[in-house]
């Protein structure tokens, strides 16, 4: 019995210490789950089908990320595909790149909390905080990992909880179904508060 107790204490401390390496304030403004849902103009799940570069109306190069197979949780998309507009790109043998921004890879299944598309440097609430990837777990189900590699493992009130970036941590990632449930329940709370 005592052995079990100490093992639990040990694991808890271990988790705390590993977590401490990646915790703290952000280069970007810190956003909790409530903020992600409430501030997003559009919440969608989709598959990155293309990443290409093109000039905007002012001739400034930007990167366009096309998402297909969309599921929309908040907001509206009238087209079958959705295009995310991010700053940076190559032109005439030179490349401009904002190193602080997360990247997209074709084939990735992602969940995005979008805000200010076409107007913001990176149109996702909290930058990396509102950008999740759907990845398979060892049990065959799909888990949710934030774009910076932190597996999403739980939620306490408004705060999302993450595990360390280890293979064990990734196995603990919540299922995509559970994450969808969280989004829906937060949206219902939003509807109720707006109705009041």
């Amino acid at each position: 019995m005592a052995g079990v107790f100490w093992r639990i204490v040990g694991e808890a401390l271990l988790t705390l210490m590993v977590g401490a390496v990646t915790a703290s304030a952000l280069v970007v403004l810190q956003r909790d789950f409530h903020d992600l849902v409430h501030r997003a103009e559009l919440i969608l799940e989709g598959t990155v089908s293309r990443v290409e570069e093109a000039s905007d109306a002012a001739g400034i190069q930007r990167t366009l990320v096309t998402l297909k197979d969309l599921t929309i949780y908040k907001g509206q998309v009238t087209e079958p595909n959705y295009i995310l507009d991010v700053v940076g790109g190559s032109k005439n043998g030179f490349r401009s790149q904002v190193l602080d921004l997360p990247s997209f890879a074709p084939g990735d299944r992602v969940i995005l909390f979008v805000r200010g598309n076409g107007e913001a440097v990176f149109p996702v609430v909290g930058v990396h905080q509102g950008y999740f990837r759907v990845q398979p777990r060892a049990d065959g189900r799909l888990g949710v990992v934030r774009c910076d590699g932190l597996p999403l493992v739980g939620r306490y009130q408004r705060t999302l909880r993450f595990a360390p970036r280890t293979s064990r941590g990734r196995e603990r990632a919540v299922s995509v179904e559970e994450f969808r449930t969280w989004i829906h329940s937060e949206l219902q709370m939003l509807d109720r508060s707006e109705a009041r």
Binding site: V27, V28, L29, R31, A58, I60, V87, G88, S90, G93, F94, R95, S96, Q97, V98, L99, D100, L101, R115, G116, E119, A120, V121, F122, P123, V124, V125, G126, V127, Q129
Partner: peptide, 26 residues
């Protein structure tokens, strides 16, 4: 803002310009 683009939730950024063929920063 960043040249007309809203910072969004970003508080600072560096826009690196370089030559992909040589890696030389401009």
């Amino acid at each position: 803002d960043f040249c007309g683009r809203d910072f969004g939730d970003i508080i600072q950024l560096t826009n690196n310009c370089y030559r992909p063929d040589t890696g030389a920063m401009v």
